[in-house]
Design a protein around this nucleic acid. Structure first.
Ligand SMILES: [Mn+2]
Ligand SMILES: [Mn+2]
Ligand SMILES: [Mn+2]
Ligand SMILES: [Mn+2]
Lengths: 127, 127
DNA sequence: CCTATAATTTAGCCAAGGCTTAGTTTATAC
DNA sequence: GTATAAACTAAGCCTTGGCTAAATTATAGG
C-alpha cells in the first residue's frame, strides 16, 4: 500500500527477531509466529520473503539469524519505536495505550518529527 | 494486516470523497484516483469494495456518493486527521512534514492519545 | 447530430499477507 | 533407541490493493 507501509512488516519482523535473540538467545519460528499473532505457515512464508530480500538467514528447521542488513534495520526500527513510546509516555499517555499506539505510529514518523519528539521527551523528563 | 490497518484504505477513501464533494460539489472517479495516486482501475475496484461494504453508492459512469455509514466514518476520520495534524504543527513540526506524517499516523492513534494531543495543542496555541 | 476525447468499466495479471490441512523433520521422554 | 509430541514446511486457497490493455459509455465541439 502507501509508501511507508511497504516496509512495515519487514521492520516489525526484524525488530522482533532481534528481541528474541537478545532475550532467548535464539529466534525460533514458533515464537515469531506467536508474538506476531499469526500462524506458523504465515510466519514461515514471510520469513522466506525476508530471506529473499536479504534481511535474515536460516536453514530448514533451524533458528533464524539476522544478516548485517537485517541487524541495521532492526536497530534503527527499535530506536524509532523507543522514541515514539517514550514520547507518548512523557506527554501523559498510559503505558498500555502508549505501547499499542507506538506499535503502529512508529512506521509513519519522519526523522524531523522524531527529533521534535526526542526534544520534548527530554524536556518533560528533566522536570 | 494488523488490526488498525484493515480500515486504513477505507478511511482515506471516504475522507477524500467527502472532501471532493465539499470542494467540487461531486466526487468523480478520475479525481479520486489522481488524489490517491493510483490508476483509475485500481480506484474503481476499491470503490466497488467500499460499495459492497456499505460506505458508498454509485451507479455506473456516475459520480460517487457516501452512505450514512460512509459519512460518519468520513467525519470521524477527518476529525482525527485534523487533531493529529494540528498537534504536529503545535509542537513545532514543519507544515510539509506534518502533512505527510499525519496522513499515516492518524490511523494508529487511539482516543486516549487524541485527547492528550488536543490538550497539548490547546495549551501551545493559547500562549 | 455526429465525432473525437474523456471517463469509466472489464478482464486479466501480480505480490503480499492471511488462512487451513497435511506431511516431514526434530526433539523429548520414557 | 524408539514412540510421541512439537516444530516446521508444503500445498493450496483467499482477499486486498496494485498494474496494463482493451472495451464501453458519456460529454463536448463543431
Ligand atoms: Mn510496528
Ligand atoms: Mn500504518
Ligand atoms: Mn486522513
Ligand atoms: Mn491517512
Amino acid at each position: 500500500m502507501r509508501e511507508a507501509h511497504k516496509t512495515e512488516a519487514t521492520e516489525d519482523y526484524v525488530e522482533l527477531i532481534d528481541d528474541l535473540i537478545r532475550v532467548n538467545g535464539e529466534a525460533r519460528l514458533v515464537d515469531v509466529a506467536s508474538r506476531m499473532g499469526v500462524t506458523q505457515p504465515t510466519a514461515s512464508k514471510t520469513l522466506a520473503r525476508l530471506q529473499r530480500d536479504g534481511y535474515v538467514n536460516s536453514e530448514p528447521y533451524r533458528s533464524i539469524f539476522l544478516t548485517e542488513q537485517g541487524k541495521e534495520l532492526a536497530t534503527q526500527s527499535r530506536l524509532r519505536h523507543e522514541i515514539v513510546l517514550d514520547f507518548l509516555l512523557a506527554i501523559g499517555v498510559s503505558r498500555d495505550t502508549a505501547i499499542r499506539d507506538s506499535e503502529g505510529m512508529e512506521h509513519h514518523v519522519s526523522e524531523e518529527t522524531l527529533r521534535v519528539f526526542k526534544k520534548i521527551t527530554r524536556a518533560k523528563i528533566k522536570k
